[in-house]
Each structure stands twice: as structure tokens, then as C-alpha cells.
Amino acid sequence: QDFKLKVSLESPDGHVRNEAFDRFADLVSERTDGRVAIEVFGSASQYSGAEVPAALAQGSIDMGAPLYLHVGRFVPEAQFADLPMAYGADEAQIYAAVDGPFGAELHTRIEDTLGVRVLGRPFGVGHAILYTTDKKVETTADIAGLKLRVPGGAASVERFRVMGANPVSIPWPDAPQALSRGTVDGTLSTDEPIRSVAMWDSGVSHVFLDGQSYFMYVPLVSGAAWSRLPEELQIVLTDTWEEMIADTRKRANARWMEARRINQENGIEPVEASADDLLAMREKLLAIQPDLVKTLGMDPDLIDLAQEAF
């Protein structure tokens, strides 16, 4: 082996992101005759998700796949899926945005800003949706008056304010307790974390499928590690990722559908939002988008480009 790349992931072994990188490591090793060894470090044993972009920019780690949300600290436009325009959008629309001209420009900016290499297209972890305890949400109007845990991010906070809810920031480890004791009525989350900590034990019994946001992992290689690789190996890496991406996205989707099914088996009832309701709420939310774009320090032109997908 000539080149070793360490991948730092927050998720544990067996998580869809870790499995994607395990498969990627095997394929790359095979295609480079073992010249490139990719080693996966899971469970945030090295860095938590939010720390990964800085660690990549500083060259402390070779590879990572942070959420766009976390890249957003450096390149605000990476948080586009948190903006009102993406409220209620389906997965296909989101992928259309990141696979199109907006995604290309976003990735160029990420590369220029952080001095990293975007290995290829991102894959999703599912929609951030509203999981609630005994307060059943059937329409967006029911959200008003709820105390909701938000994982952070000014966009989510402002969105909930417009909806009339009280956003509260509570760290994830305290969330089960806060939910079971009624400190908050619900939490914004994707399906998998709800399953992995058995949130039904903490009294969560409803989920409103409105699609508040959509979370994605974007594969990044540090500039130092990337420039060490000869061009032919760089090409193998990018080609392998691109070849895998459709399958990776499919597996990721299957995984969170599975998580939602398990959540449902444990008594968490899903409620589909009606298309009209979502559309009306999106219209209402769009009123604050220009202000939000400004506060978040986003480039309005780039956001306009993204908006074409929605």
C-alpha cells in the first residue's frame, strides 16, 4: 500500500454512512491493487460531525462526510435545505438541486473556501421531520403553540417561530428525558436517531411527515491528502464514488424507511401532510426567506439558482 486515507465519521459501525465508506474502501483497494488503503474510524472516536469540516480544512484528518448543515458554518449556502423554499420538498427535488448547476457551484465554493476536495455527489439521511409525544400534529396549523427541540441552526429556529412554535435548544443526549418529562412536546429529527435511541420509550408517539428539512452527507477529502495522490488514483477515487452514488442513495433511503417502519411498529404513528397544506405553509415561510438569506450570510444569487429545483 502506498497511500493511506483515514476517514473520520461520527456514526457507529453498521450505520449507513460507515457501510458506504466500507464498500468504497473495498472497491478502491481492489481497483488500485491495494495501493490506496482507506481506513474508517467510526463513532466519532476522532471528531464529532460538527468538527469535521474544520479538521479537514486544517488537514488533521484525510476524509470525512459531514452533513451539509455542518459545512454551513463555513459555506452558508450549504444549509440551503433548511430554507423555506425546501420546506416540504421531496427527495427527488433536493437531489435535483445538488446534482444540478447549484450543486456544482456549491461544491466549487466548498472546495475554494475550505481548501478541500469534494469527492462527489452527496447522499441523504432523510427528512428532518417533527416527532412529537402526545401532541398529535395533523396539519401545519397544529404546530403552533408547541415547545419543540431544535438541533440548532438559525433557519430552523426562524421557521418554527413563523409556525408559531417555541423552539428550544436541548442537547441530543438530554432529548429523551426532555421528551418523556414533557419539557418539550417534540423534536425535529430524522428517522434513524429516533429508532437508534428507542425514542418511543420516551413517550414519542406521533410523527408529522412535512419535510422540514433534508439532511445529506457530502464526501470531502482534505487538500493535503488529495494532493498527495497521483492523478490516476484521484480519478479512481472520484469514479468509484460516482459509480456507487446511485446505489448508496438507494441504500440510505431504504435504511431510513426501515427506521420509520420500526418506529411505527413501536407505536409512533406517521401522519402525512396534505400537499395543499404544505404548499400554503411554504408560501407563508417564503416571506422570511430573503431576511434569512441575509442573516445567514448566504449569496442570494446562488440561492436563486437552488430555488429553480423547487
Binding site: S48, A50, E51, A54, A55, Q58, G59, S60, P171, P173
Partner: peptide, 18 residues
């Protein structure tokens, strides 16, 4: 490993409500 990452680690790990 760039030494900035050590200082960064210190700052990030203290930045915790726990």
C-alpha cells in the same frame, strides 16, 4: 498532524453544555 488541530480540539471539547 498540524498542531492547530490540537488547539482546535481543546476549544471544541470545552464548548459543551455538559
Amino acid at each position: 498532524t498540524p498542531l492547530i488541530s490540537l488547539a482546535q480540539l481543546y476549544g471544541d471539547r470545552l464548548n459543551s453544555i455538559t
